[in-house]
Amino acid sequence: MVFSTFFAGAIIACQPENQQQKVVIYVSVDRTYAEPILTEFTAATGIDVLPVYDVEATKTTGLAQRLLREKERPQADVFWSGEFAQTLLLQGEGVLAPYEPPVAAALPPQYRDPEGYWTGMGGRARVLLINTDRLAIDEAPQSLTDLTSDQWPGSEMAIAYPFFGTTATHAAALYAVWGPEPARAFFTDLQRKNVQVVDGNSVVRDLVVDGQVSIGLTDTDDACNAVEKGAPVALVFPDQGPGEMGTFVLTGTVAVIADGPNPDQGQALVNFLVSPETEQRLMAVGGSQLPLYPGAAVSGCLAGQSIQGMAVGLDAIYGQLEPSKQDLSEIFIR
């Protein structure tokens, strides 16, 4: 991490010798994945990291609300989120400051804000997890729309509630790509088929692993966890054919907090987090599965695969998030 070390050295040279270098980061990425990376940053730069982690019960929302409450007297320098919806909310509320990490210029434009308010970091994809003891992989559905076919009864499929977490973000992406009416019809068809709707993606994974269902819609982190443990499962990336829309890829985000107490150190931490080296480190420990930098190697259970992502902007998804949640709450809560 030569660049980060150099940057930190420049910061330290401009500070009084007796002033302790520190940076405060609010983190909604699982601590298991984030903590080793933050420790590496301190080792590389000498800047102490003071992290505040979100809790699973509140997902990313808890820290976003905290940042909103602290807007007039910011306590954090950096926000590292495992998704992007709350980051765009904070951007709209004036909580974030523009900062464009030099290394991020190599990222595709959909993974960095055109005004510099956030940068993408790491990716997860939405996949169909198949229990291969119950369903041969060559007979599995290949498109999301296949799930509404009579070939697969609802009792054989599981999804997480589509108005929470990454499933809600995926639903908003479908609303953006297909349009609200076709997307609503898709989820209405799933509800009419009595698809099993459960409390989270890990529950979906466990139902597939245990053979209680044949097909589950989940994220690559949960799916790869099952593969790595030797479960009788396989991943299908939906809609990969010519002219098809591709699978939805969720990206994490990193942003600088406006008027944070340690702005230079915050920028140094952002530089470190969004670097290609940290992206590879995050994939190596299982914190993400897909690289955002063009040509970067895919590791872990997806090694060697070429995956077609859905071409949809984060702003378009964000614009459909609340309308889709309202629709899907009406469909799935009776």
Rank of each mutant, 00 (worst) to 15 (best):
E139K: 08
V213K: 06
L282F: 14
G216R: 04
G266E: 05
L144W: 06
V177L: 08
E72C: 06
L63F: 04
P323N: 12
D222A: 08
D48T: 05
F237W: 13
L207Q: 15
L129V: 07
L68D: 05
A160P: 09
T218G: 08
N201Q: 12
D113W: 10
R31V: 13
A185Q: 12
M283E: 03
G62K: 01
R66W: 11
L190A: 15
V312Q: 06
K71F: 07
G211Y: 10
E70Y: 14
A173S: 14
L174K: 00
T148K: 10
Q191H: 07
E56D: 14
Q265C: 11
T148S: 13
T218L: 12
A303T: 02
T148E: 13
P109Q: 13
P162L: 06
L190T: 15
V127T: 12
Q65W: 07
I137L: 10
Q305P: 03
L235F: 00
Q110C: 01
V208C: 03
V209E: 04
I307P: 02
V103H: 09
F164C: 02
I215G: 04
V23D: 00
T42D: 00
L302W: 12
I257L: 12
Q191M: 07
G313C: 07
A44Y: 00
N271W: 00
D54G: 10
A97P: 14
F164L: 10
G122W: 00
L89S: 03
E279K: 03
L190V: 15
P109F: 12
S214N: 14
S288V: 08
I47V: 08
E56N: 08
V204P: 06
Q305D: 07
Y111R: 15
G82N: 01
V55E: 14
R73E: 11
A136P: 01
D146H: 05
I25Y: 03
V27T: 09
S306V: 13
G165P: 06
N201E: 13
K22H: 04
D138T: 08
A231S: 12
G120V: 03
S4G: 12
V270N: 08
A316W: 11
A76V: 06
V285Q: 01
L96P: 14
Q151W: 02
V198S: 07
N131Q: 10
F237D: 04
P98A: 15
L68C: 05
L50P: 01
G252K: 03
D239H: 08
F164V: 10
Q267G: 02
R73I: 07
G287M: 03
I130L: 02
G165S: 13
G120F: 01
Q15M: 14
